[in-house]
Amino acid sequence: MKINEKDLMSGLFLILIAAVGLWLNQEHTLGSARRMGPGYMPLMVFWLQIGLGAIVLLASIFSDGEKLTRWTSAEIASFVGGIAVGTAVWWVLKSTGGFFGQTYNAVGTGMLAGFLVLSIPQGWRILGVINAAMCLFGLLLEKMGFFAALVGIIVLSCLAEREHLKKPVGILGCTVFLLVMCWFVFIKQLDIRVNLWPQL
């Protein structure tokens, strides 16, 4: 029997999310049909989602085999490792004071670390690096200022592309150009509210 793996996973995903949602929804009052409580709609929606997930799941068994790419052992390791490292970093930092105690800096650092671990094997490199770059931007922006955050996101995201690694001068040009352009558009023209330089 051929199994459509993509549909199989999709169905499982929909069911899993809905199950978690139903579990979380237990704390909300259902109310009556007349005065529906906060839990009424979620209950209906999640059960519907489970039903649809189940249809997708069943159908996957009877349709042509669409295979998912197999994860290499390195990919599995870095996936699990990324989640573990990210959670650990967040867990440790969130109780420390200072910079990491403010806003979402502990979360951001955890996510940055997690994505960097994820990006180690070839298959996850681009996904990991691009998202790590955005996290770095979020971390640097308020404390180190607009320009530092831009340099961070541009340089890191350029590492996702092989051609940049061969010719690093491209990264430099790209950075300078974007710094000037973003300053002109967002600061000079749009006047968005953000620190330009490090706040020490």
Binding site: T103, Y104, G108, F137, G138, L150, I153, C182, I192
Partner: peptide, 19 residues
Amino acid sequence: LVFCSIGVYSLNNNVFDVY
């Protein structure tokens, strides 16, 4: 990427939206 990041941040002036 840069334009999206700045744009998303400036929605509420909050890095939460970036994450």
